[in-house]
Simulated scan of single mutants.
Amino acid sequence: MTASSAGRTAAPARRERLNPLTSLTAAAATAVITTAAGSWPLSLAVVAACLGLSVAGGTARRVLPAGAAVLVPLGLSLLWLHGLFFPEGRTVLAAWGPARITQEGLEFAGQRILQLAAVVLVLLLFSFSVRVPDLVAALSARGVQGRFAFVLASTLTLLPAIAARAQRIRQAQESRGLVVSGSLVSRARAFRLQAVPLVLSLIEDAGTRAAALEARGLSNTGPRTSYREVADSGLQRAARTVLVLAALAAVVLRVAQAGAGG
């Protein structure tokens, strides 16, 4: 066995020793803290860390396209909303009637896009790294009912599927003559024509999942036996507690700052 193959074998082994609840707590706490802080240096650091971890874990080829599929339309909408119609903008760079491009609006939109990118990449990194059976087993071991555990695990890992489905819907609409580029009006119309089929397909998929869960008896109550054991440790449990407390502290601090400012 070569050194490179040994390294590739050791990396998955290290990831498997990490309890799915630890990675879930880390992802959720990072998203909450980043949102509550509202600091672009922190958001930039989180984005850089997610990109580095995705490259190290071998998931960059899936995380980056999925992240682009989610962030590009949302980023454009934020630029359009805050860049042109930011009420607190004072430094006007260009104006067309009621629409004004202001420096403050562009800065605000850039900060929100960076903050959104941090949250999306954190969730995508978790979605592409976690194993759903291990997550379901870990949740069930903590007393979470089987159906809820499976639905939660499936929801958390659905982001990549949403991005891929949105890409297929866009390709199908373009093959029918949909023009995505052009004016803001045509872009808004194209977004609506892509968003409606996506939402409807997700609703249909949720119904199919619910029927499958019902057929397998996951809604039944009572004791359950799990044939999959997920390793855990006191250090990881302590780390999860610290992460939850840090996220709660960030939210409380944010609320206190908002109250003091108001």
Rank of each mutant, 00 (worst) to 15 (best):
T2C: 02
S5K: 08
A6D: 05
A6W: 04
G7N: 06
R8N: 03
T9I: 02
A10H: 01
A11G: 00
P12K: 01
A13N: 00
A13K: 00
A13M: 06
R15K: 06
R15A: 00
R15L: 01
P20V: 01
T22Y: 05
T25H: 10
A26V: 15
A27N: 10
A27F: 08
A29S: 15
A29W: 11
I33G: 09
T34W: 03
A37T: 13
S39C: 03
W40Q: 05
P41Q: 13
L42T: 08
L42E: 06
L44G: 09
V46Y: 05
V47W: 04
A48Y: 07
C50P: 01
G52H: 01
S54R: 00
A56H: 00
G57I: 01
G57D: 07
G58I: 00
T59H: 02
R61F: 02
R62Y: 05
P65G: 00
A68C: 12
L71E: 12
G75P: 05
L76R: 14
L76T: 11
S77Q: 13
L81N: 10
G83I: 08
E88T: 08
G89L: 02
G89Y: 02
L93A: 13
L93P: 00
A94T: 13
G97S: 06
P98H: 12
A99M: 11
T102S: 15
G105T: 10
G105H: 11
A109S: 14
A109D: 05
Q111V: 09
Q111E: 15
I113R: 07
A117F: 07
A118W: 03
A118Y: 08
V122Y: 01
V122Q: 06
V122N: 05
L123C: 14
L125I: 04
S127N: 03
F128L: 12
F128A: 00
V130T: 13
V132W: 01
P133Y: 00
A137F: 02
A138L: 07
S140T: 12
A141D: 15
A141N: 14
R142M: 04
R142T: 04
V144P: 12
R147Y: 06
L152G: 06
A153L: 14
S154W: 06
T155H: 02
L156I: 12
T157Y: 01
L159R: 11
A163G: 11
A164M: 06
Q167W: 04
Q167C: 02
R168N: 09
I169M: 04
Q171V: 11
A172Q: 06
A172G: 14
Q173T: 02
Q173H: 12
E174I: 12
S181V: 10
G182C: 13
L184P: 01
S186W: 04
R187F: 13
A188C: 01
A188Q: 09
F191N: 11
R192C: 09
Q194E: 13
A195C: 03
P197K: 03
A206D: 04
G207K: 14
A210W: 09
A212I: 04
L218W: 15
P223Q: 03
P223M: 02
R224Q: 14
A231L: 10
A231S: 09
G234H: 06
G234D: 10
G234R: 14
L235N: 09
Q236M: 05
Q236T: 08
A238Q: 10
V242L: 13
V242A: 15
L243K: 04
V244L: 10
L245V: 15
A247M: 12
V251A: 12
V252T: 12
R254D: 03
R254N: 11
V255S: 04
A260L: 10
A260T: 09
